[in-house]
Design a protein around this nucleic acid. Structure first.
Lengths: 249, 249
DNA sequence: AATTTATTGTCTCAAATATAGACAATAGTG
DNA sequence: CACTATTGTCTATATTTGAGACAATAAATT
């Protein structure tokens, strides 16, 4: 296994990176997974990394996500390339050096890595949507912490990472109906209300209950199971499950 | 100006390229612009090139297209990144060397450039749709010829360039309504029938005349002008023009 | 000048879809 | 056993979509 903290320039494709926008869902709330970098000063940045020479970009995106967050076996998809000319880390790095200049000699962030990072980068954006309950992000040495932030209350992030989240969210909204199954974010069985709350948090607006149910059932991907008795003083809702046919990867 | 034929490794971003799928339209026929490489043997490849260090990727795509074809001032858009691991030029190059080994010492394609090209590449796909009448592709030294091929009768192309065209066409179909104005492919003024024939060639199917007109007019981007007297023995159709408001780049 | 021909602009009508309101069904509660 | 909160579904109405019909008309033909 390679050590992600001291990348050899030979092993990675130069000046090309991958950034991941991981949407997490729980309790009708849509969040984004954002690590805080392990330096003095407040620096947040999307989970990102580089591509090995013998590795496909989709493959790289999956590995990077697992390396940086411990999340694996989820459906990731590219949504856009970010490659404007002034897109480099320089301003961000200047401030980082200003605040951390005295400790930058150590193995974790030596001069060589500086050359690597200060160069101009083109980045491929990948996004995913996961069940926040099922996923426990694991922080790495690179990060001070890693947390879920509500999508409409993100911390300040470096470079164009805010634009990336915005762009990823638009793509998510556009493709949600088709991707509903692919993203394994709902529990094994769930109620229609849970699906609706998921949609409402992603679109940030209300849907009418009766028509929403019809629309989702018309997608023809759900299977109705027995009822769910919650103990609440009302009619028990049906449970549903994704019909598993032709969902091969 | 840089000489595109002898790229310095310092000037370009390494292992990252741009491929352009240029759709051309004329006489109800959708074509793709494909250069034939200037070597013995039949090698076709989409117009492609590399990204300068101080250049945004959209900017690079426009420059590459102009360098390779002479086409400029058109609306280009990225549609996907192609970056599978086995995506290199090696097999293609082996055959090229086999057929051209004796002439490969010249300035146009020396050993240094070989190193450049045999490496593994990630490529950003850009696409555009242009009026084939308004655009005169100009071939460069790199190419034996450059021609328009009907989209459903393309020459054999290297690597995954066929997949690229397929993917670009799907993106084009998905976004045509929104992009109708952006692509400046119709003449200054045009009839509804011309718009319909354009759509039919892109979707490869017929649309019903009455409803097509309604749909297009409902897009609310056209302005009706005077009639067009063609000399044909029938009712003269109206001419239309794109309303120019808020089409700023 | 009247007739014919090919094509266009628009109308209508039906089918499909979307949107909103209404209401009975029911799992618990007091 | 009424009461409450929520669910499943039905119906009625609007909106969009799809297909046919037909009058309007520019030129060619009689």
């Amino acid at each position: 296994m390679k050590d992600i903290h001291s990348p050899s320039e030979k092993d990675y494709i130069q000046q090309l990176s991958i950034d991941c926008v991981i949407f997490g869902y729980r309790d009708s709330q849509l969040s984004v997974l954002v690590p805080k970098l392990n330096f003095r000063g407040d620096f947040w940045a999307l989970p990102s990394g580089f591509i090995y020479q013998n590795e496909g970009i989709d493959e790289a995106a999956r590995r990077i996500l697992e390396d940086r967050t411990g999340i694996k076996d989820i459906y990731l998809e590219q949504f856009r390339v970010f490659g404007d000319a002034p897109r480099s880390n320089i301003r961000f790095l200047e401030r980082l050096i200003e605040l951390n200049g005295d400790t930058l000699g150590d193995k974790r962030f030596d001069r060589k890595e500086f050359d690597w990072i200060t160069r101009r980068f083109v980045s491929i954006g990948y996004y995913a949507l996961v069940d926040l309950n099922k996923v426990v992000p694991r922080k790495t040495e690179l990060d001070e912490s890693i947390d879920w932030y509500p999508v409409r209350a993100l911390p300040p992030m470096i470079m164009d990472h805010h634009d990336m989240v915005k762009c990823a969210l638009e793509t998510l909204q556009l493709n949600l109906d088709q991707k509903l199954i692919a993203f394994n974010l709902l529990p094994e069985t769930f109620t229609m209300r849970e699906v609706q709350e998921l949609y409402e948090s992603i679109f940030n607006r209300a849907f009418s209950r009766n028509n929403f149910q019809k629309k989702i059932l018309d997608l023809d991907v759900l299977e109705r199971l027995e009822k769910k008795f919650t103990g609440a003083a009302n009619k028990a809702p049906f449970l549903y499950r994704f019909r598993n046919e032709g969902v091969a990867g």
